[in-house]
Amino acid sequence: MDAAPAEVTGASPAAAANRPVPWGAVWGQPDAVAALQAAASDPAGMTHAWLITGPPGSGRSTLAYAFAAALIAEPGDEQVMRQVLAGTHPDLTSLRTEGVIISIKDARALVERSYFAPSLGRYRVIVMEDADRMAERTSNVLLKALEEPPERTVWVLCAPSDADLLPTIRSRVRTLRLHDPDVSDVARLIADRTGVDEVTAEQSARHAQRHIGMAQRLATDAAARARRDETLRAVLGVRGVGDAVEVAGRIVAVATEDAKALTTERDESERAQLLRTLGVPEGASVPPAVRSQLNALEDDQKRRATRSLRDGIDRVLTDLQSMFRDVALLQFGRDDLINRELEDDLRALAAAWSPQRTFVVVDRLAETRRNLEQNVAPTLALESLLVTIASGRTL
């Protein structure tokens, strides 16, 4: 889920605490909140399939669950709303893939649930986070359910952009587009939430490019800030194939360590919980009768680890895009930089390179991100990118 964000850009984040459930966690999207509040209060004009789009960290998922709570609960029933927000209400079905793609099996399960009548609430709500991770075959599973949902079922899809979904999906949903908050507003939110100083909050919001969850992580994790700085400086120092191979290996190694740190403890807890549920004593061998369930869990965990690694590398590529975006701005006489701490190095690079060379690198960064989504080996993809940076090839 996107990091929970307050209400109006420029308003104090603390004001969110005084707003009614379920909208108190939604920050920086007043127009979207108003549209969904109006929809939830007007059953006659209700749209039964929605697509919430916005950049990572804009609060797509937070808004989706707030909308679900407003739809399921009777007006003013905060107890039920909080149950929906906690993900425990029987009339909420949600899917957030932790794999590389959303499987057809998972999509079919959502469609099946969508045809159940609400058991307790006003509506049954199906929330699909990361809807952009559906392959075409998976999207086709959803088409009829989105086109003709039961009267009291509402679908809410979340994706970075409507362009990430098939036209056949887009034609069946009402799209609600979120916007980026300002860096200064994200910085105030992060300072309020974490207690960090204003300088760290501003730097973190800027480096995260207003992604609230990432800004909070950078603000509260000095090691993450240091790794980001070291990575950007290392890429600036690449001069040839040998450097490219070394730096690419280092980036993948760091991303792998981060992925393990995020998943190992959870994996062990899930395994222990499953064995307890199956009645297997701690330390005992796993009986053949339950091995299939354990294998299924391990397969899910492997997919989650792969996704976590890819997300980590994609975050590095996002940081590199911000750096070469800064170079391009300097070449055209602009100085509103994301990476101000590297300004001297970036000015030197802007003077040494032509704008054409900078745009070749920016294009190759976008291509590398696409290639990683197509399961290209991360190390090879990064090596190719860094050789391009070092050589300035215009292929």
Rank of each mutant, 00 (worst) to 15 (best):
A6S: 06
T9R: 13
A11H: 07
R19Q: 06
P20T: 12
V26L: 13
Q29M: 07
V33C: 15
A38H: 10
M46C: 03
T53M: 08
G57R: 09
G59E: 04
G76H: 06
Q79C: 08
V84K: 11
V84M: 13
I102W: 01
D106G: 11
D106K: 13
R108M: 12
L110H: 05
R113C: 04
Y115S: 12
A117N: 07
M128K: 05
R137E: 15
T138Y: 01
N140A: 09
D162H: 05
D162V: 03
R170A: 14
H179E: 10
H179K: 15
V196E: 04
A208K: 00
I212V: 13
T220A: 15
R225N: 07
R227Q: 08
E230K: 02
L232H: 02
A244G: 07
R250W: 10
R250F: 05
A255Y: 05
T256Q: 12
L262I: 10
R271D: 05
L278D: 10
V280Y: 05
V280C: 09
P281W: 03
E282M: 02
A296N: 10
E298Q: 11
D300V: 13
D300G: 11
R304F: 12
G312N: 04
F332V: 06
I338M: 07
E343G: 14
D345F: 15
L349T: 02
T358L: 09
E367W: 03
L372I: 07
Q374H: 12
A377F: 01
L386I: 00
